[in-house]
Amino acid sequence: MADTVQPVVRKDSSKVKRPVPVAAPVADTNILSPDADTSKGTTVDTLFVPKISKDTLDAPVHYKAKDSIILMVPDKRFYLYGSANTKYKSIDLTAEKMNFDQETGILEATNAKDTAGKLFGGPIMNDGGQSFESDTLKYNFTSQKAKIYNTRSQYGEGYIHSAQTKKAADNTIFGFKNGYTTCNLDTPHFSFRARKIKVIPDKLVISGPANLEIEGIPTPLFIPFAIFPITQGQRSGILPPQYVVNQQKGIGLENGGYYIGLGEHFDLTMRGDVYSYGSWSLTASPTY
């Protein structure tokens, strides 16, 4: 008889082939689809942070020149020629020639000479309502300080001529070898000469000992100090005189004096005149 029982075959389960797992495809975020909307947000790469240079300024500088602009890459210098203009924050500077040292952050502005040897195009700086005319100006962008040579500036009704001027970051002015006058000429007829002065913007011009000069000649008139207000509205202070020439009285100063503000409805004005031939006068004018 045939054996109807099938033999049992043992299988080695360790050799059974199992399906190999396949990783799901990952989208490449570096490739933008033409139909992708990128306006909903941006991704910032935190691994790359651009380095900021040490000499980077906190505001842009706009500059131009009528003739030419030269960049010296090895020296890190800019040269501007011909009606150069530079704007930085509230500063507006114009001059015939300028050069900027990127390493020190100092901008130097100077005048030039024409074919006849006459100077022209001197630096003019406007900053916060203050205006300075000079022969040479150096401005530090880092400290926001300036040094100005042979400058002429106007404060209220008066003019200050200084051999050297230092401008602080808060716009306070320190002058050396100064002359204060109300004459608007480049060479004033008269001035009070003082070695040192300090100008507090929109408040006061403060001077140490000063000597009156007429036509460049010192006079015996000295004052121990002077305070000239440059604010708007009522304020006590010195009233600068006016230079005059009178055939009968000689060279003189008129309407110089002192104003005293005593309140909203009352003040006192004292004025005096003095002449080279010896005559003088004093007046007091109260106002209520």
Score class of each variant (00 low, 15 high):
residue 195 R to C: 14
residue 62 H to P: 05
residue 19 P to F: 10
residue 17 K to S: 10
residue 180 Y to F: 11
residue 228 F to D: 07
residue 137 L to K: 05
residue 261 G to P: 14
residue 211 N to P: 03
residue 243 Y to L: 04
residue 218 P to C: 07
residue 230 I to W: 00
residue 53 S to E: 10
residue 140 N to Q: 01
residue 108 E to I: 08
residue 220 P to G: 06
residue 172 T to Q: 08
residue 277 Y to F: 15
residue 238 I to K: 13
residue 119 L to T: 08
residue 284 A to P: 14
residue 120 F to Y: 15
residue 158 G to N: 10
residue 207 S to M: 11
residue 18 R to T: 15
residue 94 T to S: 01
residue 222 F to T: 07
residue 280 W to I: 01
residue 206 I to Y: 07
residue 90 S to Q: 06
residue 64 K to C: 09
residue 47 L to C: 08
residue 84 A to G: 00
residue 19 P to L: 13
residue 210 A to M: 02
residue 71 L to C: 13
residue 179 G to N: 14
residue 214 I to D: 00
residue 275 Y to Q: 03
residue 2 A to H: 05
residue 198 K to V: 12
residue 267 D to Y: 04
residue 191 S to P: 00
residue 208 G to P: 11
residue 51 K to F: 06
residue 134 S to W: 01
residue 195 R to G: 15
residue 99 N to G: 03
residue 281 S to H: 13
residue 109 A to H: 03
residue 265 H to T: 13
residue 286 P to G: 09
residue 109 A to I: 03
residue 187 T to F: 04
residue 47 L to V: 10
residue 6 Q to E: 08
residue 25 P to G: 08
residue 245 V to L: 09
residue 76 K to F: 09
residue 182 T to N: 05
residue 95 A to Q: 04
residue 64 K to V: 11
residue 44 V to K: 12
residue 145 K to P: 01
residue 126 N to W: 01
residue 116 A to L: 11
residue 222 F to S: 07
residue 183 C to I: 03
residue 176 F to W: 13
residue 55 D to M: 13
residue 217 I to P: 03
residue 258 Y to Q: 10
residue 214 I to K: 02
residue 225 F to K: 01
residue 1 M to N: 05
residue 125 M to L: 01
residue 260 I to K: 12
residue 202 D to V: 01
residue 228 F to M: 12
residue 85 N to I: 00
residue 262 L to P: 07
residue 287 T to I: 11
residue 143 S to E: 09
residue 62 H to E: 02
residue 96 E to V: 03
residue 104 T to Q: 11
residue 63 Y to T: 01
residue 243 Y to S: 05
residue 127 D to F: 02
residue 243 Y to D: 00
residue 211 N to I: 05
residue 279 S to W: 06
residue 4 T to G: 07
residue 81 Y to V: 11
residue 250 G to A: 08
residue 127 D to W: 04
residue 83 S to K: 15
residue 107 L to C: 00
residue 98 M to S: 03
residue 169 A to H: 08
residue 213 E to F: 10
residue 123 P to N: 01
residue 30 N to W: 03
residue 67 D to V: 14
residue 140 N to K: 04
residue 184 N to H: 10
residue 282 L to A: 12
residue 78 F to D: 04
residue 174 F to E: 09
residue 179 G to D: 09
residue 90 S to A: 07
residue 64 K to T: 13
residue 219 T to R: 12
residue 261 G to L: 09
residue 134 S to H: 01
residue 89 K to R: 14
residue 74 P to W: 14
residue 71 L to W: 15
residue 231 T to V: 11
residue 152 R to E: 02
residue 115 T to M: 06
residue 1 M to Q: 10
residue 68 S to H: 12
residue 40 K to A: 09
residue 107 L to N: 00
residue 105 G to Q: 05
residue 129 G to Y: 02
residue 123 P to C: 02
residue 245 V to P: 11
residue 287 T to C: 13
residue 127 D to L: 06
residue 45 D to K: 15
residue 123 P to L: 00
residue 269 T to F: 07
residue 128 G to Y: 02
residue 130 Q to D: 12
residue 24 A to K: 10
residue 114 D to V: 08
residue 115 T to P: 02
